[in-house]
């Protein structure tokens, strides 16, 4: 059973380096089950989706990307991908609403496109979120585009998310009229509704957890719906609590470890100092696990559903994305 049955737009943010894009991709795969179709959007021009799924760089149009994670009920759904860049979005927007074919090109020549998409306050964000809004808005889409059951947005980092989604307040001081203002109001309606959830990814370290706490406060203050917290890159738990405590206190028995290693035929390695290496590994691991536990407790005080994903020592490839998707689903995120 999903924790987010009514959510159509899943926004995934997080501090840089916490695996935001990986989590967004895994969530899209996890949501695409039982025949549900999901759109995964990226807005930061990095072509991260193409790299993760090992496909050609994505154009400014929806592309079928992958089949979702199979489930027990019904067939798997599909994941489509959309790479939104502000220049294309602006020209499309002008062509659509104003039939500005010629002027659109002129605007480009005069540097207005560059101006609007890189410098004008909020316009860039309206254009980026606008395209995502088109795909996620209730009541189907103009022009008969494909309808999705859910949209996952790989969003800008926590520090910019409120500004990114809160485009209307940013614009309020400047554009009091005009279609950009009108559209941003419409979009805020969706972003502030129960059909949206802003999930935050973090790792169990002090700064990212602090940023998560700050992010939740800011999102709430802006009236944006806070979703879950995805804890990424959690260390393996190969030592049980008792062994972990002993490893941390330096109280593991070297004789016992040596005995086990020799029994497994590792005499050469024992002679090379493997026992000390393993005990040092254990001690270091215990220190880091204790730090993780402290941050986990801190996260628990934030009162949001949390989902944990393991650190994958071999890196994240396509197979790993499905593995992570499975873990998110098991924990009720999809």
């Amino acid at each position: 059973m999903s924790d987010w049955p009514d959510v159509r737009l899943h926004v995934v943010t997080g501090k840089g380096g916490t695996g935001k894009s990986t989590v967004a991709a895994a969530l899209a795969l996890a949501l695409a089950h039982g025949g549900r179709d999901v759109l995964l959007c990226e807005v930061e021009g990095r072509q991260g989706i193409a790299r993760m799924f090992d496909v050609e760089p994505l154009p400014y149009e929806e592309r079928r990307l992958a089949t979702g994670l199979p489930g027990r009920r019904g067939r798997a759904g599909t994941v489509h991908a959309l790479h939104v860049d502000p220049e294309s979005a602006l020209l499309e927007y002008l062509a659509l609403y104003y039939h500005l074919g010629r002027a659109g090109r002129l605007l480009d020549r005069f540097g207005v496109v560059d101006f609007a998409t890189t410098l004008a306050p909020g316009v860039r964000d309206v254009l980026l979120t606008g395209k995502v809004f088109e795909a996620a808005k209730p009541g189907g889409r103009r022009g008969g585009g494909r309808a999705y059951d859910a949209v996952v947005l790989d969003a800008p980092p926590t520090g910019r998310i409120v500004q990114f989604l809160g485009v209307s307040s940013e614009l309020a001081g400047l554009a009091k009229v005009g279609p950009v203002k009108h559209q941003s109001d419409l979009m805020m309606g969706l972003f502030r509704s129960e059909a949206t959830a802003v999930h935050l990814t973090t790792v169990l370290e002090e700064m990212p957890v602090q940023e998560t706490a700050d992010g939740i406060t800011e999102l709430r203050a802006a009236g944006l719906p806070v979703g879950g917290v995805v804890v990424d890159m959690v260390r393996p738990r190969d030592l049980d609590d008792e062994h972990l405590a002993a490893a941390g206190a330096g109280a593991l028995d070297p004789g016992g470890v040596e005995h086990d290693l020799r029994a497994a035929g590792l005499d050469d390695e024992v002679a090379d100092g493997l026992v000390d290496v393993l005990l040092a590994d254990g001690r270091d691991h215990a220190v880091r696990r204790r730090l993780e536990d402290a941050q986990r407790e801190r996260l628990a005080t934030l009162g949001r559903p949390t989902y944990e994903l393991p650190r994958l020592a071999g890196g994240v490839d396509l197979g790993a994305l499905y593995e992570l998707a499975g873990l998110l689903r098991e924990q009720g995120m999809s």
Partner: peptide
């Protein structure tokens, strides 16, 4: 055309 488009987009103000 250009200023017209900009006005439409972000408002005359």
């Amino acid at each position: 055309l250009v200023t017209g488009a900009v006005t439409k987009l972000i408002g005359a103000q």
